Lab assay of single mutants.
Amino acid sequence: MTSCHIAEEHIQKVAIFGGTHGNELTGVFLVKHWLENGAEIQRTGLEVKPFITNPRAVKKCTRYIDCDLNRIFDLENLGKKMSEDLPYEVRRAQEINHLFGPKDSEDSYDIIFDLHNTTSNMGCTLILEDSRNNFLIQMFHYIKTSLAPLPCYVYLIEHPSLKYATTRSIAKYPVGIEVGPQPQGVLRADILDQMRKMIKHALDFIHHFNEGKEFPPCAIEVYKIIEKVDYPRDENGEIAAIIHPNLQDQDWKPLHPGDPMFLTLDGKTIPLGGDCTVYPVFVNEAAYYEKKEAFAKTTKLTLNAKSIRCCLH
């Protein structure tokens, strides 16, 4: 018999989150649709729960009410004593943790798909938090293969000092899905179709896995975050240069030392320094102006996964 890495157990509980950011409308629209008619997301033997994560922000069509829901799922915020004085999103995070967690427990949901849009030209993107997770690498390989020839990129946010504390991190297997470009507060049919297909293929993978299909060893190309880059700023902290036209919409493309990065209003080009080629992502993302992030630098690498098969009882 072929030796293989056996994944822990079959997958039982899956959640699909929309509206973690209330103005990213593809996930909101799909989740609302699936709450009314969820036939397309159901798979035999699998509990799939669509869920609106930040209903107040969705109602106002804004990213958040008090603070970013997708950055506060750490033990400090989840452990705060519940009171009306807490920011709305912290209270909501505790409610979500109660419903789908608790985080880092045996009772937490197996998989959470968190649906997002970006204003950046990132196409279909899967966000991975753990480079050693054979199950998710296999799932992402399946999704990428199923979507081809449509490109699907994998963004690895594993980093020693950049801690995200994402909404989906309460699950055993957290999956971020990011599709763009799409303006905030807008629905685009092409973007919706791409996100819908990503979810379909992900659920198909889980179904095949649960039925005992063995997935042979595989490898995927990923883009691992190195650092986030702020806009150049003046002495008052105001933005002093904008994304250069040569960099705009060039997510995932190589940016070499000396290539144009920013452009000042008086026409001066600010190039990339250093001696390493990087791959920019979230270029000129609207939501990241407040976070002082013009783009993120990534490096390209390959992740390998062992063969996996479900432990059938």
Rank of each mutant, 00 (worst) to 15 (best):
T2W: 07
T2I: 06
S3A: 13
C4E: 15
I6R: 14
A7Y: 15
E8W: 08
E9H: 15
Q12S: 14
K13H: 06
K13S: 08
K13A: 02
V14D: 02
F17I: 07
F17V: 08
G19V: 03
T20Y: 05
T20G: 06
H21E: 05
H21W: 04
G22Y: 07
N23W: 00
L25K: 15
G27T: 06
V28A: 15
F29E: 15
V31R: 06
V31D: 06
K32F: 03
K32L: 00
W34P: 05
E36T: 10
G38H: 11
I41G: 05
I41A: 00
I41W: 04
R43G: 01
T44H: 12
L46T: 07
L46S: 00
L46I: 12
K49G: 01
T53A: 15
R56M: 13
V58Q: 06
D68C: 04
L69P: 07
N70W: 02
R71T: 14
R71L: 10
I72K: 11
D74K: 11
D74S: 13
D74W: 09
L75W: 13
L78G: 10
L78V: 12
L78S: 10
G79R: 13
G79P: 11
K80I: 13
K81W: 12
M82S: 14
M82R: 13
M82F: 14
E84Q: 14
E84N: 14
D85R: 12
D85T: 13
L86H: 11
L86Y: 11
P87R: 11
Y88R: 06
V90P: 07
R92T: 09
R92N: 07
A93L: 12
Q94W: 11
E95P: 04
N97T: 12
N97F: 09
H98E: 14
L99W: 12
G101N: 08
G101W: 04
D104A: 13
E106L: 13
E106M: 13
D107S: 12
D110V: 04
I111G: 01
I112D: 05
F113Q: 03
L115Y: 04
N117L: 04
T119D: 01
S120W: 02
M122Q: 02
G123P: 03
G123R: 05
C124I: 08
C124F: 04
T125K: 00
T125E: 04
L126Q: 04
I127N: 01
E129Y: 08
E129A: 08
E129G: 08
D130M: 05
D130W: 00
D130R: 03
S131V: 07
R132V: 06
N133F: 02
N133H: 05
N134Q: 13
N134G: 06
L136F: 06
I137S: 05
M139W: 01
F140A: 11
H141M: 02
Y142W: 07
Y142I: 04
I143M: 06
A148W: 13
P149A: 02
P151N: 08
P151D: 09
P151H: 07
C152V: 15
Y155L: 15
Y155K: 11
L156D: 00
I157A: 15
I157E: 15
E158T: 06
P160T: 12
S161R: 12
L162I: 13
L162F: 13
K163S: 12
A165N: 15
T167E: 06
I170G: 05
A171G: 09
K172A: 07
V175S: 05
V175A: 01
G176P: 12
I177G: 02
E178G: 15
G180K: 06
G180S: 01
P181Q: 00
P183I: 01
P183K: 04
Q184F: 11
Q184V: 11
L192Y: 08
D193E: 13
M195L: 01
R196S: 06
K197P: 03
K197N: 12
I199K: 05
K200G: 13
L203Y: 04
L203F: 06
D204F: 03
D204A: 04
I206N: 06
I206H: 00
I206S: 01
I206Y: 00
H207N: 11
H208M: 15
F209E: 05
E211A: 14
G212H: 06
K213N: 10
E214N: 08
F215A: 05
F215I: 04
P217Y: 03
P217W: 00
A219V: 09
A219E: 15
I220V: 11
E221V: 00
V222C: 13
Y223D: 00
K224C: 00
I225Y: 15
I226G: 08
E227N: 07
E227P: 06
R233S: 07
E235H: 10
E235D: 12
N236H: 12
G237F: 01
I239R: 10
A241H: 05
H244V: 00
L247C: 01
D249A: 05
D249W: 00
Q250W: 04
Q250L: 04
D251Y: 03
D251A: 03
W252D: 02
W252K: 02
K253I: 07
K253S: 08
L255E: 05
H256G: 08
H256C: 10
P257C: 01
P260C: 01
L265Y: 14
L265F: 15
L265T: 10
D266A: 08
D266N: 08
D266Q: 08
D266E: 11
G267N: 09
G267Y: 03
G267I: 02
I270M: 08
L272P: 01
L272N: 09
L272V: 08
G273N: 10
D275H: 09
C276L: 14
V278Q: 02
Y279D: 02
Y279A: 03
Y279P: 05
P280L: 04
E285L: 05
A286H: 08
A286M: 08
A287K: 13
A287W: 09
A287T: 14
A287N: 14
Y288T: 15
Y289F: 14
Y289L: 14
E290Q: 12
K291L: 04
K291F: 07
K291G: 12
K291I: 04
E293G: 10
E293I: 15
F295D: 04
A296P: 05
K297G: 00
T299R: 12
L301K: 08
L303E: 06
L303K: 05
N304G: 08
A305H: 01
K306L: 09
K306M: 11
K306H: 13
I308G: 03
R309H: 12
C310Y: 09
C311R: 12
L312Q: 12
